[in-house]
Amino acid sequence: MQLEDPELLHQFRQPETKEKAFTAIIKKYQEKLYWHIRRIVIDHDDANDVLQNMFIKTWNALENFREDSRLYTWLYRIATNESLTFLEQQKRRSAVSLSDVESGLSNKIKSDPGFDANKLEWKLQLAIQQLPEKQRIVFSLRYYDEMPYEEMSRVLETSEGALKASYHHAAKKIEDFILNH
């Protein structure tokens, strides 16, 4: 049975239970965070790197975590920022524009062993990659993670109204893409 976040944080602050509590936090959130990261960076190895780095940073930052926000919201924010930083670094390393990175992400989807261009689920993945970065993350958090706008607003530090508008625009664009491809 999983412990509640406040209890896990309390145990984390005790030296004798620190590692155990941290392991429990990883187990509790690893899959949600992994898929959130994976949808942004697409490749498994990249997602693995980003996920591990974000948890290592969390280990150091968790001591100072103020419980005025929920742990899961805080973890999502770190994961999102780490993913975007990773894409930015990729762009700098290869000296290509963000649109090239996005087309690179589409190519990664197409090169996946399970890719099937006729399946709607794969078309949806390609459609998501056509979106601007911010819309892509908003759509992913809402559509896949089913995150309330209120939580999403804390993760992305954006107003709920702007997030709703962004989600609607994203959904319309995806629909257009799927219908026309």
Binding site: W35, H44, G114, E121, L124
Partner: peptide, 10 residues
């Protein structure tokens, strides 16, 4: 979009 199955393709 609402009709698409949310099956994880990855």
């Amino acid at each position: 979009l609402a009709q698409i199955n949310k099956t994880n393709v990855w």
